[in-house]
Structures are given as C-alpha cells and as structure tokens.
Design a protein around this nucleic acid. Structure first.
Lengths: 209, 209
DNA sequence: TTGCCTATTGTGGTTTTCCGCAGAGAGCCG
DNA sequence: CGGCTCTCTGCGGAAAACCACAATAGGCAA
C-alpha cells in the first residue's frame, strides 16, 4: 500500500501547518497537499490512512475531489473540514460515503479521535481489499470452462448433474473441479463458498463513532 | 410485518396534515403520531416502511426517539425533518444510521423521492431480516452437540477429523450431520455455508441517493 | 514444427459421504 | 414407570468424490 498516512488537503498554509502540527504531536504521521489537483494526481486505489479535506478551495473543491476519488475506486476515508458548512452538503457527503464532516473551528481532541477512528477503519478496509484482490487474482486464473463448473459447484450440484448440464463426462468435471480447488487454493467446496462469500459483501458501510 | 407505511411523527398538526396530504397525493400510505412517546409505544422490531421524524418536539425529541428505537432493535429508516438543524447534529444522526436529514422548508418532490427511496430500502431490509430470523429460528433447533459438529463442518473438516476431535465415532458424526442438514433445511455443506454467510454481513449500510 | 495450454475421456481403485436398520445408556417429564 | 429426546455406536451397502496414470485433440505462439 502506498502512503499509509493522514493526508491533509487545504489551500491555506496556516491550516495545513496547524493540522500537521496537531497530528505530529499525537504521533500521527501526515502529509500535506496544497490543492485538490495535487492530491488527485497522487491518489490511487491503494492509498491507505485517511484524508482531511477542506471543502472550499480555489480550483477543485473538496467535494469535487471526493467525487473524483470515488470514481477512481479510491476508498480512502474522508473527513471534511469546513468553515461554512450547510446541512444539505454534509448530508450528501455522508450519504456518499464520507467518513465525517467537521465544522471549523474544530476541537483538537475530537478531531484527532476522528482521525484515529478513520485510520483504524481504513486499516480493516485495506486488509479486506487485499484479500478481495487476492481472490480476484485467483479467479482470473480460471478458464471459462472452470468458471462454468464452479458456478454449479457453488449451486450445490453433484458432479453427475454438472456433467449432464454441460454435456461432458463426469471425469472431466472431476478434473475441472480439482483444477478449480488448486487455483483457488482451497481444499473443499465449503472453503470455496466461504472465500467467495466476502466478494458479495456491501463495500459501503461505516461504523458509528 | 406490522405497519408497512410511512410514519409521520410531529407535534405540529399543520405539519402532520401537510405531510400526510403530500404523501397521499402520491399514493404513499401514511400514519401520523403527535408525539415521540406515542410512536415509541407502537414501534417494534418488525415495523416496515419509513419514519418521517421532526427533531424538535416537546417532551421526547426526535433524536432521542431515534436512539430509543435503535436500542429496541427497530431498524426502520428514519428521515429527520428540522427547521433549525445544525451540521453536527445531522452528521451524528447519519453516522448513527439515519436515512436522511432534511431541513425545512423542504421541497415536496425531493421529500417524496427520499421517502420512496427509504421505503424501497426498507423493503429489502425487511426481506433480509426475515431470512435472518428464519435462519436463527432454525439454528435454535440445533442441540449443543450439533452446533459443535456444524462449526467443524463449516471449517471444512472431514467427518473422520471431526470424530477424532470430539472423540466420538464417525457414525455419530454422520448422524449429527444429517440432523443438522435436516433442521437447517439444506442439502449440502455448501448450502449451509452460504445460508450462514448472510448472518455475518454488515447490517449497517445505506445506498447513496 | 515443437511445446504449452485447454478440454476432453477412460480405467481402476481408494476414500468419503450418506443412509437404513438396530440398539444402548442418560436425563427429563407426566 | 413409560414415553421422549439426546447422544452414542456398529454393520453393511450404495452413491459420490477423489486421484494417479494414460491418452486424444484443437489452438496458439516461439
């Protein structure tokens, strides 16, 4: 993972420095960016940590950066900072998956707590994302035929039934089956089912603070 | 399910009537309550639909009602209505799982859209909750020993291994196994694994509007 | 052309699962 | 005490899964 830290995006140098100083005083590593554009150029799918993001900035706004990041599959938890936030904006941001929305002036301790919560949340997300990527890499190894067989295995069908449906010999199904287990690195249909179970889980949830 | 409709909770009769009239004009059935206490007395785990809730009311506030409902396992999606909402309150409500947070004066079309979205969201939730309850009822039928065996089946262990671990004969494991499948109404370990898979899923997620 | 991957099938045998039949001991309740 | 449930076990057989060895055939790339 690239950049497992707190990223501070604000156009005001004084605010950036204050936030960085605050976080450093609590041993939270951080990195600052003076514009949404700069951070967007850096961001990628596998950034970990969290993002402290000012809403109003010249050029790209915090909200727009947030939308762009989501479009890029970047799931970094975002804590918005704003001096003039209105309720609809905050509601929309949270419904779109923002981690928090804080009005300035902020309380130092509260902000740090939220940052820590976001980082902890993201650590879990990163771990889960890693597992999912690994799974998908393995899935990509399967041939078309193996996919067809796997679907039917997960449907709980017997080899005999699968063979009938695909109009091939039972022996062939057995071969595919063993290849599937080998490529997916599982040793039974149960393990396979459990491994693939996490792929369908809602990737959009937050824990209450 | 009890009361699959939109529940309007507001102390102001004029607001209640206006909301009910608006919803009725769009063929959305609704029911009104003049205080948080009244609705709380009515609410239960299996209410379906959605809740249009005023924040400021004499006696119990909307926020408090919301907390109480959550404590009672009532997962009804809540749309807060407020004339004087502040950002922190909205943020906290949403992080606690509120469906939406709208400031008065509201736009009629927008509000109806949100209500419909909440109802649709809740229909899915109710369906899933029903499935989960059914599963848990079936799980409750299992004896202690059967639970122990089931765990090990889900761990992908062979009957032989399970027998060793529990220090019983393989035949006994087979008997337990068949009882488990019968009680859980599945026909294979894969189906069992998939059925129980939904129990662990995050019960806290909203779809972006 | 040769080599590799994919898909296919067969033979024969072992292991595992699943099931019916049959029975035993412990604990609980009317 | 007589049912009832839960737990445990054995026997024997059918069905299914699993596996090693062996082979055919098409497609594709070095």
């Amino acid at each position: 993972m690239k950049g497992a830290a707190t990223h501070i995006v604000d156009d005001d140098p004084a605010v950036r420095d204050a936030l960085q100083w605050l976080l450093r005083s609590r041993d939270v590593p951080s990195q600052t960016w003076d514009s949404a554009e700069r951070f967007l150029a850096f961001a990628s799918r596998d950034v970990c940590g969290c993002l402290l993001l000012d809403v109003r900035m010249p050029g790209m706004s915090g909200i727009e950066l947030f939308d762009r990041l989501r479009a890029l599959q970047c799931r970094l938890p975002v804590i918005f900072l704003t001096g003039h936030g209105d309720v609809p904006m905050a509601v929309q941001a949270l419904k779109d998956g923002a981690f928090d929305f804080i009005e300035k002036p902020y309380d130092d301790n509260l902000l740090v707590d939220k940052v820590l919560a976001a980082i902890e949340h993201d650590a879990k997300r990163c771990a889960r994302d890693g597992a999912i990527q690994l799974l998908q890499q393995r899935l990509a190894l399967l041939t078309q035929r193996e996919h067809e067989v796997m679907q039917r295995i997960l449907a709980g069908k017997l080899n005999k039934v699968i063979a009938d449906e695909l109009d091939i010999a039972m022996r062939t199904v057995e071969v595919h089956r063993s290849h599937i287990f080998e490529k997916m690195q599982v040793r039974s249909a149960v393990e396979l089912s459990q491994a693939l179970g996490m792929l369908g889980d809602a990737p959009n949830s937050r824990s209450g603070s």
